[in-house]
């Protein structure tokens, strides 16, 4: 997309601004929809009905919530480190949002068609860790600090399984560019990397158990990286009030919230592009094309967002030691086996 804009408008500041702001056109409406989805799904899973009065079945409630948050007083604790406190939410959001640049939304659109796509996303989303730590530290509140500590420990340890499981797909495709990865999987549902990729049948069958495992682990690690239940130790409401965003109010809190939802989609987007064919249609050439591919990407992404919501309202929170156990003693060894096996199969 950047190249196209560059050709169109020349080397001007406008190109960068438009290029950077385009994913926002998706992220902001998505956050509104995701809030509603989360509330409605959680309510119906508990046999409730959630919002019913704002608009048809309460569909306008997120808009009302945003309006309310805009009007809230923006408080800063007296003993907080004011500068870091104000900086933190933006850094957290930036970490998630910057990842959207390398996400191929459609066969015609990718923010920046760089060769290091996935690697860039992994690197830039680590920025959020600094933001979280900053918010916890600057709040000068023990719950915030606890939350921040936990979140940093968690995200750093879950980066390893997520990076390794990305590696499995990258080994099969041979490219870090998510656009290339998506193109590689074109041709229908059987060519998706979860199902072994577009390989000869025997190789496909051999790859199948490992790709499925890696796909599953990538999704799990993704949930852990966005700090959602069952891995929501950083903001464990029952233990830590709200974790690192305890002291935040108004728009700053809203930005944390937005970052969470942006990250939710980013994680889903990575999982979808790497393992579920990205923007490719599950029916081969039927319903493909730039617009259909955008639809497929968003539909698949939304399915994984729904899955995250579903998991959140089903499973209880893990203990800290269980969390670390899962990451280091279960996911990582399994992935080593996967990488070894996939490498072996690909070489043979």
């Amino acid at each position: 997309m950047y190249e196209l804009l560059h050709d169109l408008l020349g080397d001007s500041l406008l190109v960068y601004v438009i290029g950077a702001a385009l994913p926002l056109l998706f992220v902001l409406p998505f956050a509104v929809v995701a809030v509603l989805l989360e509330m409605k799904v959680s309510a119906h899973m508990q046999d409730r009905v959630a919002y019913m009065y704002t608009g048809w079945h309460g569909v306008l409630q997120p808009v009302a919530d945003i309006l309310k948050l805009l009007q809230k007083e923006d408080t800063v604790p007296a003993a907080a480190d004011k500068f870091l406190f104000r900086l933190a939410p933006f850094l957290v959001f930036m970490g998630g949002y910057a990842g959207f640049a390398a996400l191929p939304f459609s066969s015609a659109y990718i923010g920046s068609n760089i060769d290091l796509g996935v690697f860039y996303i992994l690197a830039v989303s680590s920025l959020a860790v600094i933001g979280l730590m900053m918010s916890g530290w600057a709040s000068n509140n023990k719950w915030s600090l606890f939350g921040a500590m936990r979140s940093v420990a968690q995200i750093i340890s879950y980066e390893i399984p997520s990076a390794l499981s990305i590696l499995v797909a990258v080994m099969i495709v041979g490219s870090l560019n998510l656009q290339e990865v998506s193109k590689f999987q074109e041709g229908g549902i059987q060519n998706w990397i979860v199902f072994g990729g577009p390989m000869p049948l025997l190789q496909k069958l051999l790859l199948l158990p490992f790709t499925i495992t890696a796909f599953f682990i990538l999704f799990l690690a993704g949930i852990a990286e966005v700090n959602r239940t069952p891995f929501d130790l950083p903001e464990a409401e029952s233990e830590l009030v709200q974790g690192y965003n305890t002291e935040y109010s108004g728009m700053k809190f809203a930005i944390f919230y937005l970052a969470e939802f942006a990250n939710m989609f980013l994680v889903s987007g990575i999982v979808v592009s790497l393992y579920l064919g990205g923007w490719t249609s599950p029916f081969g050439d039927v319903m493909s094309g730039p617009i259909w591919s955008f639809f497929w990407f968003v539909a698949k992404g939304m399915f994984f967002v729904f899955l995250q919501v579903w998991i959140r309202w089903t499973l209880p929170r893990l203990r800290v030691d269980q969390l670390m156990y899962t990451s280091w003693k279960v996911l990582t060894p399994f992935l080593f086996v996967c990488i070894f096996a996939v490498g072996l199969i690909l070489v043979l």
Binding site: A43, M45, R48, V49, I311, T314, L315
Partner: peptide
């Protein structure tokens, strides 16, 4: 976890008692 997920998805489609 699968048992739990099955329970919640079933409740997603049962009518609300509200």
């Amino acid at each position: 976890a699968a048992i739990g997920m099955k329970t919640t998805i079933r409740h997603l489609f049962t009518p609300a008692v509200t």
